[in-house]
Design a binder for these strands. Structure first.
Lengths: 140, 140
DNA sequence: CTTGACTCTAAAGTCCACTCCAGGGTTTAC
DNA sequence: GTAAACCCTGGAGTGGACTTTAGAGTCAAG
């Protein structure tokens, strides 16, 4: 059994974050000592890694909690998990496109101002940012 | 001279947002009526568009305030603006890469589970998320 | 036996860009 | 003249994932 500090060290996370996960319903200690210290079993580390990897895939903690709850649901099958992964991939694609169009807009601004020795008042970048047609599509 | 409501309508933004910009030092009304109503000049609309376009390029309001302050600084030249644009493009590129690796991680998980009829306990996605090597690099 | 490292709780703070609210005053249209 | 539509201020709320703080109890080593 691991105390919160040991689990935190093993998972490279702060004890505070672990307590936060508990409050969010993602990871409860197996038991407590008589004095109230949290004690975690071996699977806690696997759970911590699960959370970290899912976060690295773009899932929020609320979504991760849902993924974990699928395990409790008898009728849920792997397809439910797969569907959530596919949806998240779509969300990521949309965000990536949005940021790519921001980057492309910056590309155009930077190119417009290849020689940057003018004063800020004459800067083509500043001017372009005031134009109606300049810039990227709004981010969502 | 425009009241806050007129400017808001022209800029397709809420009056609350305009008051927020004022509090953040991005856009002050030209003057006020005797009763305290904000009155904006014509350049206010150009300023609103500047803010919106810069946001669409990924700049935060704090960064936009800095861009605007460059105009007040005598010694600042267009290169300063250009440098900020280049730096922002770098930041965007980093975020895009991070999200692309998230998406690629999801690709692998989804492929691993082409047939999703198993129970969640045997789901290859759930299993992979618990492995040390699974997942993408952490987002920053 | 004491010092220092660890743990506990509950609540508040952080960042960002707003939105929403209450409780007023003002202006415009009919 | 009155109702609707507008405007004002200050402050609280939102979401997300924590961190920080304060005050207090607990445990291991020397």
């Amino acid at each position: 059994m691991l105390t919160i500090g040991k689990l935190a060290a093993a998972g490279e996370i702060s004890p505070d974050a672990l307590r936060y996960y508990e409050a969010e319903g993602l990871l409860a200690p197996t038991t407590r000592t008589a004095s109230g210290y949290r004690l975690y079993g071996e699977d806690a580390l696997r759970r911590v890694r699960f959370i970290q990897h899912a976060q690295a895939c773009g899932f929020t903690l609320a979504e991760i909690r849902e993924l974990l709850q699928l395990r409790q649901t008898d009728k849920a099958c792997c397809n439910d998990v797969r569907q959530r992964a596919i949806e998240k991939r779509l969300q990521l694609a949309a965000k990536i496109r949005s940021m790519q169009s921001m980057s492309a807009a910056l590309d155009r601004l930077i190119a417009e101002c290849a020689d940057g020795s003018q004063s800020v008042d004459d800067c083509p970048i500043m001017a372009a940012l005031e134009q109606i047609d300049g810039g990227a599509e709004p981010a969502r």
